[in-house]
Nucleic acid binder design. Structure first.
Lengths: 351, 351
DNA sequence: CTGAAAGCGCTAACAT
DNA sequence: ATGTTAGCGCTTTCAG
């Protein structure tokens, strides 16, 4: 007659004691076998009996119980800190997931909607569930304020950073990306390149523009001779800006765009004006956006934002934990992807 | 005779006993106060002392421990069962996350890459972590085989289904979506509508096509008089198909597309051929794809796929759990979104 | 109105 | 070579 009756439905899952009973050993022995506990030597015959029982019952350890005991949950918190939960998050999550699973961890996901209050709240929920580490990601590269409580577990920032770099962060190398995109155009023979940028105030915009100017100067050109118009990363701003560009007398032979969406807008405006890409004008995108850049006609030459690799690296560094943990900013290369929207200018620049 | 001090490196988080000690009550009382345990009456003064201590220490219950005790983890497993982890998953996750958080749950996310083996494996990992329920989602609506082990917790399918409908599923009402898109075009006065479909074998394609034909017949037209060409949902297939369409003598006054990406391809081909949208040809998309449909020029008239709502509904139904749980298929409406790419045909159809 | 105590399922030090 | 035992931090009877 048990005084403390527990009528909670016992998920029906076999427990370690069930395995022990079936194998005719103690529960501890089951753990020793399954965990290959160092310093414990188990006779081969016992091990077989245990494994046999495990297989027979389909036993799998309860990780909540393991976690409570060991103080770790085999779970990593992924915080998507942005209003839009879109392509960026999906890619970064995919990379982080892949690397995490390889290490036996799973991702506990939250989306803050960009609010710092929500972020603090949700990081709390994550920590309550004993996540072993935190990945904090933003869609548009930017400076963020991370909840104080995040300091309680290893944390790494993806596509964002804190002003003093006290938390390690992983960022795309946008300066180099902008430089290489411009360089590719220069190498093709273009000498008059317009740049229709994304949102002027954005970190990425400034970095890419800097790269663009570096490339120009590197080719002996004066950046001030080149048109730079700023948009907002949306397709329609590309369309508007391109039309504005076309109303002028001189037409550039190539147009660099803030991102692929803007490039699509530019393509539309160009076509509407009866111009051909890349015959009359070359167009360069940025992002290598999934299901867009490669599929459009002509396929966009662009620069790939390594979102997936960034997520993967974050999860890997978190696992490497210990002393080898990264500090400061890690810049990831944004590889150039040349497709059909760029070509040599029809008439030599100096013609 | 002080009780032993603790020399174990404690994760730094205050525990329930710390609160109890500070408030001068027993640990049980702390639980009673925090959980507002029914059938337990606590004096107002004691409650205040406890809450005061909780605030002072910043105490938050360890949910892993709660979970072990209660047999629930306040966590829902979200399985994204597809090779591409993209826009669909992001939207569905966003909806599911929002609804879950409102109920105090968090999402534990896994991505199977479309492999059934991986799915079984990962669902195992999810169940090991005691997730209270499972959401199983696919990017392209389709029939799936879910791991047997999923049967151990409440499960709901999003954008996919099992052949015998033994597991409840939430799907977009594609037939109605296709019908309403066609109807909108008919109402505008179009009588010659071509349909450039997505992948012919896809469930969604067939359903939308059926809706298209229903609308035509409803208007007294014969579907056999209307061109139907099948593509593959990629932008370039829209481009190719539109070009094929334009090489024929008779040009339809409106084109319905398999999805927005194909519509973009169609737009490009039309523009390239010197045609204007919607003046010369109306174009109708499908999906209302984020950052694409609304931003393109002209903005696409389309049909919204309610991915976010589907995710939200799934999480809500899982919470409603008990007896009110849904069975069979639930179809969600895909609302028509009219923008700038559709208009009345230039010349009356019967002209 | 409050406290003592029995576990949830597991790990790991300490016996044997 | 294997078993015993003491918790991990919490909920929830049951007693006082």
């Amino acid at each position: 007659m048990s005084t403390h009756e527990d009528h909670r439905p016992r998920a029906g899952r076999p427990r370690r004691t069930d395995v022990a009973r079936l194998a005719g050993v103690s529960p501890a022995t089951v753990s020793f076998v399954l965990n290959k506990t160092a310093g414990q030597t188990i006779s081969d015959e016992t091990r077989q009996r245990v494994l046999q029982a495990v297989a027979e019952l389909g036993y799998r350890p309860n990780r909540a119980a393991q976690g409570l005991r060991q103080g770790r949950s085999a779970t990593i918190g992924f915080v998507s800190h942005d209003a839009d939960f879109g392509v960026f998050a999906a890619s970064a999550i995919k990379g982080a997931h892949e690397a995490s699973v390889r290490q036996g961890n799973l991702l506990l996901l939250v989306n803050t909607g960009g609010s710092n209050r929500q972020a603090a709240q949700l990081v709390g929920e994550l920590l309550d569930r004993q996540t072993d580490a935190l990945i904090f990601a933003a869609a548009g590269t930017r400076s963020v304020v991370i909840p104080e409580s995040a300091g309680r577990v290893p944390t790494i920032l993806v596509n964002c950073f804190v002003p003093d770099d006290s938390t390690p962060s992983i960022l795309p190398d946008e300066v180099r990306g902008g430089r290489e995109a411009a360089q590719a155009l220069l190498d093709l023979g273009h000498r008059d390149i317009a740049y229709l940028t994304g949102t002027a105030s954005a970190w990425a915009t400034k970095a890419r523009l800097r790269g663009f100017r570096e490339a120009l100067r590197g080719a002996g050109l004066d950046p001030r001779d080149h048109t730079v118009l700023s948009g907002n990363y949306h397709a329609d701003s590309g369309y508007e800006l391109a039309r504005r560009l076309l109303r002028r007398d001189a037409r550039p032979t190539a147009i660099m765009c803030g991102n692929d969406r803007m490039a699509v807008g530019v393509l539309l405006a160009l076509l509407e004006a009866g111009l051909r890409v890349p015959e009359d004008v070359s167009v360069m995108g940025y992002d290598d956006q999934f299901q867009l850049a490669a599929e459009i006609h002509p396929a966009l030459s662009t620069v790939r934002l390594p979102y997936e690799a960034m997520g993967r690296l974050a999860a890997e560094q978190l696992a490497a934990d210990g002393p080898a943990v990264q500090t400061g900013r890690t810049l990831l290369h944004c590889p150039l992807v040349i497709r059909g929207s760029t070509a040599a200018p029809a008439r030599p620049a100096r013609g």
